[in-house]
């Protein structure tokens, strides 16, 4: 049985990260409260920016409601609907629901009760988010890592080789190196996929035709697991197209059909 995991599932514990206020506000809504319809109060945590605008601030849509991109470069664009933002206009949008041209923003956009310091932190975060979300993404390559090393590194390399042999995606191939400059680490994908498998009660078994070449009966489960993560990454890159962000990859890892890679009952 080509099982990807040993009998005891080893789930990497999430690394404790120091979160800056701007990031905590954007991702979790910490540090502000929201008011809708002139009087309906919500905590920031119930309506964090990332929930609608995406963890990469690239925007989204839900039915007829469009959540535009709000990375700082997009906000400052001269051709932006409603006009380009500067720091003062951004504060007016958050507090008063006004676009730079004075038009009212839609009801779906909350009015936030937020301090100047919190706005400054948020602006700093939005200025850096694009670079952060595209770290490791170059015109012809995307840099990933497997900091666990050893068998995990071996497994991810096998997937990278396969991806590149198949022609890469949108003019880019995958390269491997240190975590500090990578778009994603194999462990990050592992966290997302382990959670999916756990919730679905699936013991992952790779589809026979995807088994890494050269096939070896004694291929370590950790190698197979990292290889599976790499296959998912490759498919996510195809789905994300030319505009690759970390959030896009993670989003597809959460959603793509596991039956593409696994033998499911």
């Amino acid at each position: 049985m080509r099982s990807l995991i040993a009998a005891c599932l080893i789930v990497a514990a999430p690394a404790l990260a120091q979160t800056e206020p701007g990031q905590a506000l954007f991702l979790q809504g910490e540090g502000a409260s929201a008011v809708l319809f002139g009087g309906l109060r919500m905590s920031g945590q119930q309506i964090a920016c990332a929930g609608c605008h995406g963890a990469d601030a690239r925007g989204d849509a839900e039915g007829a409601t469009v959540f535009p991109p709000i990375d700082w470069a997009s906000l400052r664009r001269g051709d932006r609907a409603g006009g380009p933002y500067d720091r003062a206009a951004f504060a007016a949008a958050l507090r008063d629901g006004l676009a730079p041209d004075g038009r009212r923003l839609v009801d779906a956009m909350p009015r936030y009760e937020i301090t100047d310091d919190a706005i400054d932190g948020l602006v700093r975060f939005l200025q850096g988010i694009d670079a952060d979300q595209r770290r490791g993404v170059g015109p012809r390559s995307i840099h990933i890592s497997a900091r666990a090393g050893g068998d995990a590194l071996r497994g991810l390399s096998l997937a990278v080789d396969r991806f590149n042999r198949d022609g890469g995606a949108f003019g880019r191939s995958l390269t491997m190196g240190p975590r500090e400059t990578s778009l994603l680490d194999e462990e990050d994908l592992g966290r997302i996929l382990d959670l999916r498998l756990e919730r679905a009660g699936i013991k992952p078994v790779l589809r026979a035709e995807l088994y890494p070449s050269p096939a070896r009966a004694d291929t370590h489960p950790r190698t197979l697991r990292a290889y599976f993560h790499g296959l998912v990454l490759g498919q996510a890159l195809i789905e994300c197209g030319r505009d690759v962000t970390r959030h896009c990859i993670e989003d597809h890892a959460r959603k793509l059909r596991l039956s593409m890679f696994l033998d499911l009952p």
Binding site: A48, G51, C52, D60, E62, F67
Partner: peptide, 9 residues
């Protein structure tokens, strides 16, 4: 994580 929070509010 998006509009449902608003409709519930």
């Amino acid at each position: 994580e998006s509009l449902c929070a608003v409709t519930n509010a």
